[in-house]
């Protein structure tokens, strides 16, 4: 059965604390931290973007998979912050890693769901026998407008998954998708920051789709919430995934391992995939893992994974995501953050 043969996650070393953003805009630091359950978020270095994050995450995935990059038949990056409006991110990635040129490459975009889309299509190719291995990545260097609620959470990071049928570390037992046209969050061409519909992003968007996909895959698979060792949802803030878990009948203990949002922020397309990587870092053979992503617009992809005997053999072949999140944290004040995120208008050329 096809599944994950190698995985890797990466976040940049820079951080800003939620309270420093709150202070900048005259907010109440305590209330923000309590309201969002968020301590700090990652910030990309001046030299990092969705492509460089994808390359680093895929290097770790290749280390774990132990395969030749040349055997990968498709490479898909899901992101809402592709560095170019026109010119693929994936082409840089495949040439940086020695994949191809005999490879199918596409960039995906579906707000925060683009990463699981890439994973789904990569897995589908392998499952259908189109190719031996396929790569699906979710990565973002997301931006929230200065002073907007999104600014507290929009962060940078990503995870990469190599799908295959041999030496599988986590089998994909089931998938399910739930999609409607729901305009809760959007960004038009040439607009710098996304717009959102405030509280409309909650009940009719995030919760409706997560619940729809979650209930759908439980029903389709015939499994119950208590069957699962670990659960991960898209993490736009600390509270939403905890509440989604409760709605679907999961306990907090099942969610905690993949719940990185309090120290990472919302890595958009990288959010639930990075949470999945954190779970794969610790899961044991036989463990069932439940995952539901969410992308505004809106839709959710749900997956059921089961860890195999191979997983413990590959866990330590690359750095775990909680270790990466814990080491070499370099804190920025709001001024430095504004410079790093290019929120300041300069005279050309810079």
């Amino acid at each position: 059965m096809a599944g994950i043969v190698g995985y890797g996650a990466y976040v940049p070393c820079y951080r800003i604390k939620a309270e420093d953003i709150a202070r900048q805009w005259g907010g109440d630091p305590g209330a923000v931290k309590r309201g969002l359950l968020l301590e700090e978020k990652t910030v990309p270095g001046l030299d990092e973007d969705t492509i460089t994050i994808s390359v680093q995450a895929t290097r770790y995935a290749l280390q774990r998979a132990g395969i030749s990059p040349a055997e990968i038949g498709a490479a898909y990056i899901g992101s809402e912050s592709h560095p170019y409006a026109v010119k693929p991110s994936g082409t840089v990635l495949i040439d940086a890693l020695g994949i191809g040129p005999e490879v199918h490459v596409a960039d995906y975009e579906f707000a925060c769901k683009a990463g699981t889309e890439a994973m789904f299509v990569a897995w589908s190719h392998v499952q259908a026998g189109h190719m031996k291995y396929a790569l699906g990545i979710g990565a973002d260097t997301s931006q929230g407008a200065p002073g907007d609620a999104l600014e507290y959470t929009a962060s940078a990071g990503g995870a990469a998954f190599i799908m295959g049928k041999e030496n599988v570390a986590a089998e994909i037992l089931e998938t399910y998708s739930f999609t409607t046209d729901t305009a809760d969050f959007w960004r038009k061409e040439h607009e710098y920051y996304p717009q959102h519909a405030g509280r409309f992003t909650g009940e009719p968007a995030y919760f409706r789709h997560i619940e729809g996909a979650g209930r759908g895959i439980l029903e389709k698979s015939g499994r119950k919430p208590e069957d699962f060792a670990y659960v991960v949802f898209h993490m736009p803030n600390g509270k939403f995934p905890l509440r989604a878990g409760k709605l679907l009948g999961f306990r907090k203990e099942q969610i905690e391992e993949g719940w990185l949002v309090n120290i990472m922020g919302n890595t958009y397309s990288g959010s639930s995939p990075t949470g999945l990587a954190a779970i794969l870092d610790v899961a044991k053979p036989g463990d069932l893992i439940f995952m539901v992503s969410f992308g505004s617009g809106a839709g959710s992809d749900a997956f059921i994974f089961q860890a195999t005997k191979r997983l413990p053999e590959i866990q330590s072949k690359a750095p775990g995501i909680r270790a990466i999140l814990g080491e070499n944290r370099r804190y920025l004040d709001y001024g430095q953050y504004a410079k790093y995120r290019r929120k300041i208008i300069f005279n050309s050329p810079v």
Binding site: G45, L46, D47, E48, D49, I51, T52, V55, Q56, R59, P83, Y84, K87, V92, A96, S348, P349
Partner: peptide, 20 residues
């Protein structure tokens, strides 16, 4: 060595990658 953005000629020009 890690893969990073190295430089751009200008905002509208290609992004040039490499190793740091």
């Amino acid at each position: 060595m890690v893969f990073r953005r190295i430089q751009e000629d200008g905002q509208a020009d290609i992004i040039q990658y490499g190793h740091k």
